[in-house]
Design a binder for these strands. Structure first.
Lengths: 187, 187, 187, 187
DNA sequence: CATGAATGAGCGTTCATTCAT
DNA sequence: AATGAATGAACGCTCATTCAT
């Protein structure tokens, strides 16, 4: 049997992803989790605390994911594709959390903080991949920082299209090809 | 002297862009607009109606903008760059409206509808530009629909980075270069 | 017809005096005042604000009362009796307010502040009366400050007995006689 | 090692004296006593029951104190001073309990009951002392009941000044002198 | 056209009390 | 004896909306 705290988190994650933080009322949350409203406050200091817990967990997962990606990828070619594809995979496995961040980073400070850290990690890792790829001679010479930022922008846009317009055809493969072409070494 | 209705819209646009639709209370809106709360309801059916009006206006402007772009651009080369650059310009001139749509399309139906139509227009126009560019032989052969979608994704990501992380260096030029390289004809 | 704000204040004063600030709920207050709960917050920023308003009003009245007492009493003999008797009269005319202060100054900061100022004024005025009476030669030589404080203590105790044990026989006259005897000049 | 019940009482007495009965929550009480919330209800029927137990204990102590005072004092002169001074001593030894009663007798029925009995005993004892002192010829002829009540009022006022304005100079000695002068036999 | 007082449903949160373990 | 998770009623407060003037 699942612990109450985890059940609250699970239900909250779903609700916030679906209807947003504001419309996720404690009354409805308690009802859907099959507990009383007061019980929420035995496990969380406030409604905000629930959001922060969800975001912190996602942060942690993303940090682990980036770390793992770095250790795995050592010496392998084709790293730019891997940056993109690995991120696609991470997103697919954390749809709800990502939806929450993307839909509220503009307005909710905790979400904003989370988004800051995600973007920072993404950009740093992308820049490192670009530098390595240039050293390996598999891509042409570019400004690593700026190009990494362009990749982050593309990734961000792809994410939103995927999450909020899932009925569209999947263009991830096309995006990877687009990037490869943009960065490929001209012989 | 400005009409009351327009003053309400102006103040509302600023407030919603800054703090979001939920945190924009009718009480504060009335106060900042120098009118009484009841007066808002002389001009708008509901708080939602204000948002819809703002969004419809933005829609209208974007539609005009796309139309103008099409007539202007006939027969000119380098259309992909123009798609991007013209959009950057439009955004710069409608910062508040764009901020509202981007920060709420995931949660507010009217915003969602607006975003749908913007993305649709953007994608259609990009696809047309790509087709034309291919006919002119200035870019390589690609799938127009999918590539247009990739461009939309990139545009969307760039917008968000620009609006919510304005402290970052402007990478618009880099993005344009990135796209040119991705699409350029290999001789 | 009475203004809503004043009706709220009136009902609140009665309720707080009777059952205390904690037990005076906004729901009950609204009901007894014949208004909705939300209306309270059109006139007061918070429940605390109602208390503060009541206390400030009482403060103001007491300040006026002391001022008037000073101007009236110039040159008249028997001032110690007048200090006591005037205070009895003030209390009788502001029973509810006084009850509120006395019942909550130990626990509620705004009430505490109010009580501080009342005691201060009372003591200062008593000390001045004592000094004047000594100069006039109608009372014996005493330490004015300390004796004033004793009078304040007695006044405070009499007040509480009167307000919370109204079934007891009125001992105000006895108290005045007690003080006269304690201060009278021994020939 | 202290029994759990006594530890609860001790912590509760301190908390209630400091922040009041309302602000003394069972959660905080349990935490400060190093027990779980449920344990409180093994030893007390309700939160109210804790208060009543504390008050009953104080009542008991005061009753013992008065009894002892009566047996001790037989035949000794200067009894009025002793009434006052003994009470000062009792207060000093039961500060917390006294603070609880004084701060809540106006609003909490159990506290009110306690205060009734204290005042009754105080007044009765004071009246007896006065009668005896008159018989011994050490004070002038006064109405014993009413004068006792005046003494109780003074005592009550002194207590409050002492407990809630401890920064003031101690006027107990002055108060004793004041009473002696008020009651002394004029030769 | 404009006001602003009034509404009332709903919000997040608290807390004394219960009960299975 | 003790625990601590769960309860649920009540709390202070917010806010979009209405309506008599």
């Amino acid at each position: 049997m699942m612990k109450t705290k985890d059940r609250i988190l699970d239900v909250a994650r779903k609700m916030i992803a679906e209807v947003g933080f504001h419309s996720t009322t404690t009354a409805l949350l308690a009802q859907k989790a099959g507990i009383s409203e007061g019980t929420i406050y035995r496990h969380f200091a406030s409604k905000d605390d629930i959001l922060v817990t969800i975001l912190d967990e996602l942060d942690e997962r993303y940090s682990e994911f980036i770390t793992q990606l770095k250790t795995e990828g050592d010496g392998h070619p084709g790293t730019i594709e891997r940056v993109l594809e690995a991120n696609f995979k991470f997103v697919a496995e954390h749809l709800e959390g990502i939806k929450i961040v993307l839909s509220s980073f503009a307005l909710l400070p905790p979400s904003r903080r989370s988004m800051n850290s995600v973007i920072d990690r993404m950009r740093t890792f992308a820049a490192e991949s670009i530098v390595r790829s240039m050293e390996l001679g598999v891509i042409r010479q570019v400004d690593p920082e700026r190009t990494a930022m362009v990749l982050v922008a593309l990734l961000l846009g792809l994410l939103e299209l995927r999450l909020y317009w899932p009925e569209n055809t999947d263009i991830n493969a096309e995006a990877v090809a687009f990037c490869r072409q943009a960065l490929v070494k001209i012989q």
